[in-house]
Computed example of a mutant assay.
Amino acid sequence: MSGSIAGIVETLRSWLYCAFLSPVTEVLSSLPRSRERTPPPVKTRDVVLLLFERFPLIPFSCLVDCMRTANRFTADHAYRWHLVSPDGQNVCSSSGVQVTVEGPLEDVAACDRILLVATNENQYFADEQTFRNLWTLDRRGALLGSASSGSFVLARAGLLDGYRCTIHWENLPVFRELYPHLEITSNIYEIDRSRGTCSGGTAALDMMLKLVEQDCGHEMARRISQIYQHDRLRTPDDRQRMENRYDLIRLSPKLAEAIDLMQNNIEDPLTPQEVASHVDVSLRQLERLFRKYRDTTPQKYYLKLRLENARQLLLYTSWSGLDVAIASGFSSHSHFIKSYRDVYGRTPREERVPDTDRSE
């Protein structure tokens, strides 16, 4: 009796499996596994990084690591990068890290992008062969860009004419004086057709993420951003954080507007009354805002901006003291010298003498 019951149970089990479980199992096995994502196919792009002696390491790392991470998430590597220098010699970063390059720039026949990583010491870089090589790559369709002060090199070569561009805020005064015909912004990066420039530092990551977005889609760029704990994908409309500007906009938009106005009128300074009128406040209101948030007067703050501009020109150009004074809004050379010494404790001429050469 027990044997016949066991046989009936086994028969029912086999029937149920064939009728219901087997088809369901076949359907489930045919479905793709959620964890097995096939990386999207993309075009592989060749990116050349042109490194100059004493190049900054942070923007260089941002570029390379962003491309490396993009390669992790694509079926075919999205990027191949090549390291070169103007003369093919190995280069040393500003922090002392030695980098081996593949060769000189002139060996690069073609590429999709070439990004310059340079220091502000390269603002007078004038190697004609390098300029010719860059122009050749431009004619062959490469995007030319800068991850740091390489904007100086591109501008000197005439390769930024007619394009929006940017540079680190510390270099903006010198850059604007040297190239007044360029459309220079204070944004963190600019991508304008076949040109891409950024303000250095981690802004190189923002610019590279934007290029990844163009190449591989928004989701890929967002995913890489999260890998690097980057809070969001910043856009070219994001401005550089100059002197806690965002906090100031939140606390006092009128004062932020007044400071922007002063920064954009260094060579031909406005009077405090003119500044107040432009931002639609009274002179007394403007004075109260400067006293509350900057602990100074509008006149002293404006003078500080003009002297900072002068200091950058003294350190990074070969202009005469008189030319520096005029470009910084001083009609009297003697007044410029006195004002400079009062703030920095040395004359403009002494500013250009290395510390090791100054007499004690």
Rank of each mutant, 00 (worst) to 15 (best):
A6D: 11
G7H: 10
W15E: 13
W15M: 13
L21M: 10
E26T: 06
L31W: 03
R33N: 15
R33D: 10
T44K: 14
L50R: 04
R72M: 13
L83I: 09
L83S: 07
P86M: 05
D87P: 00
S93M: 01
S95C: 06
E106N: 13
T119S: 15
N120G: 06
F125H: 07
D127A: 14
E128F: 04
T130I: 12
W135K: 15
D138V: 03
L143A: 01
G145I: 02
S146R: 07
C165V: 07
H168A: 03
W169I: 01
N171P: 00
P173V: 03
R193S: 14
S194F: 05
G196E: 00
S199H: 01
M207W: 02
K210I: 03
L211M: 15
E213T: 10
E213R: 04
Q214P: 00
D215Q: 06
C216V: 01
D231R: 12
R234I: 00
E243I: 07
Y246V: 06
I249P: 01
L251N: 07
E257Q: 10
Q263V: 09
I266T: 12
T271F: 12
L283A: 11
L283S: 14
R284T: 15
Q285C: 09
Q285G: 04
L286Q: 04
Y293H: 15
R294K: 15
T296I: 11
Q299W: 05
Q299D: 14
Y301V: 11
L303H: 08
T317Y: 06
I326P: 01
I326V: 15
P348N: 06
V353C: 07
T356F: 13
S359E: 12
